[in-house]
């Protein structure tokens, strides 16, 4: 009888505890190959350069550009406000707080999109959210933002907008990663913002 009471006295309180606590929903992340494929083909991680440029121009504080190229390449050229996390250093302890957070929107970029894709996949596999990839990388950035090809039948508004956009972008390029140079580019930026809106309307029509 005693052993029965002992058993009941142990198991029933344990069951009461497990019934009372909320169930653990944290997933020890490991995406299966299939799940990762699903995410990769859904284009969920890709952010178009227009959107990134727009956020840069509007000084959106939630944007965090992350350059996954080597420090040498980063020193030569980088997008404004970007920080450098070389792909080989991605898993270093000091970057965990940057990569694993739910406040900012991290956008990986590299020359093409291969390395940034790899960075995204690794962080995704680790279960980090809010990480994205700059679509097409810096090459596509140069095509669309720095040297936009004017469409054959565009309104003058759009051309001006694109010209201003390019000017704004090259201004941003002139500065280095430092915050103060980015601030010096502010006066030019509100102008660009208003033109950008026009461009959007024109595009919509």
């Amino acid at each position: 009888m005693n052993s029965r009471l002992l058993l009941a006295g142990f198991i029933i309180p344990m069951a009461l505890i497990i019934a009372a606590v909320p169930s653990n929903t944290t997933k020890q992340y490991k995406l299966t190959a299939n799940e990762l494929l699903q995410e990769a083909v859904s284009y969920e991680p890709y952010i178009h350069p227009d959107n990134v440029a727009d956020m840069l121009v509007q000084q959106d504080p939630s944007l965090q550009l992350i350059d996954v190229r080597t420090p040498d390449e980063f020193d030569k050229f980088s997008l404004p406000g970007a920080i450098n996390i070389p792909l080989s250093e991605l898993l270093a302890d000091q970057y965990v707080d940057i990569l694993d957070q739910d406040v900012k929107m991290n956008v990986f970029y590299s020359n093409g999109s291969l390395n940034s894709n790899e960075a995204w996949m690794i962080t995704r596999q680790l279960g980090y959210s809010n990480n994205y990839v700059l679509q097409g990388g810096l090459n596509y950035w140069a095509e669309t933002i720095i040297n936009p090809v004017p469409p054959s039948s565009t309104s003058p508004d759009e051309e001006i907008a694109k010209y201003n956009f390019r000017k704004g972008a090259s201004m941003a390029l002139g500065g280095s990663v430092e915050g103060n140079t980015a601030k010096s580019a502010i006066p030019a930026k509100p102008v660009i913002t208003s033109k950008k809106k026009k461009k959007r309307v024109a595009g919509g029509c």
Partner: peptide, 8 residues
């Protein structure tokens, strides 16, 4: 219902 409650 919750798994825990089912267990109880």
């Amino acid at each position: 219902i919750k798994d825990g409650l089912m267990a109880l």
